[in-house]
Amino acid sequence: MANIKSAIKRVDVNNKKHANNQAQKSAMRSEIKRVEKLVEANDAENAKSAFRSTAKHIDKAVQKGIIHKNNGDRQKSRLAKKVNNLGA
């Protein structure tokens, strides 16, 4: 365990940041699952609006460095393909 005051503070700060990052990552994953569930239910209108919200969550996670840019792009691409195939 850290003995020095600054090291103790770093541990606290890192734990807070880790908790915030995990919460945001979890929210992003929940949004992705919500879109996939709407796609399975063939609900095109709600899936499109949910996709826009999900894309914002993914972009925010990429911006904050929670996930890698390519990972975010891949997730959005896969979801967009699913949503676009609903209309066809």
Results as ranks from 00 to 15, higher is better:
N15I: 08
A47R: 01
E31Y: 02
N42E: 08
K48D: 07
R74V: 08
M28C: 03
D59R: 15
T54H: 02
K48C: 00
N21F: 05
E40K: 15
N3I: 09
S49L: 06
A88K: 14
H18Q: 15
N42V: 07
G72T: 06
K60I: 08
S53Q: 07
A7H: 10
R52Q: 09
V13P: 03
D43S: 08
H57K: 09
K76W: 03
K64I: 04
A80K: 10
A27Y: 04
K48P: 00
N42C: 00
Q22I: 13
R10C: 04
K17F: 08
A55Q: 12
D12E: 15
I67M: 07
M28D: 04
Q22Y: 06
Q75W: 12
Q75S: 09
S26K: 08
E36H: 02
S77K: 14
R29M: 06
I67Y: 04
S53E: 14
S6H: 11
K17V: 07
V11F: 12
N3S: 13
N70M: 10
K60Y: 12
K37P: 03
N42M: 07
D73L: 10
S30H: 02
G87M: 05
I67E: 07
E36K: 06
K48G: 09
V83C: 06
K64H: 15
K9A: 13
A50G: 01
S53I: 10
A19H: 08
A7P: 00
S49T: 12
R10H: 06
Q22R: 09
H57Q: 14
K37E: 11
T54G: 01
H68T: 10
N70T: 14
E40M: 08
I8E: 13
A44S: 11
K81R: 07
D12L: 14
S6A: 13
N71K: 13
T54E: 02
V39F: 02
Q24D: 12
R74I: 09
K60T: 14
N3A: 13
A61S: 14
H18Y: 10
M28G: 03
K69Q: 13
K37I: 04
N85L: 10
K5H: 06
H68E: 15
T54M: 03
V83M: 01
V11H: 07
M28K: 06
N85C: 04
K37A: 12
E31P: 00
A7T: 09
N85M: 11
V13Q: 11
I8Y: 04
K5W: 10
S26Q: 14
M1F: 11
R10M: 07
K33M: 06
A47H: 04
D12N: 12
A50Y: 01
E40L: 12
I4W: 11
K9P: 01
N3Q: 14
D59T: 08
I8R: 15
A41I: 03
I66G: 08
K16F: 09
Q24M: 15
E45V: 12
R29P: 01
S49E: 11
I66S: 07
K5C: 03
I66K: 04
I32N: 00
N3P: 04
E45I: 08
Q75D: 11
Q75G: 01
A47T: 02
E40I: 04
M1Y: 11
K76L: 04
V11Y: 05
V39G: 01
N14I: 05
K82I: 05
E31R: 05
L86N: 01
R34W: 00
H18T: 11
I67D: 03
I32A: 00
A19V: 08
F51N: 07
A55R: 13
R52K: 13
K56Y: 13
N71T: 15
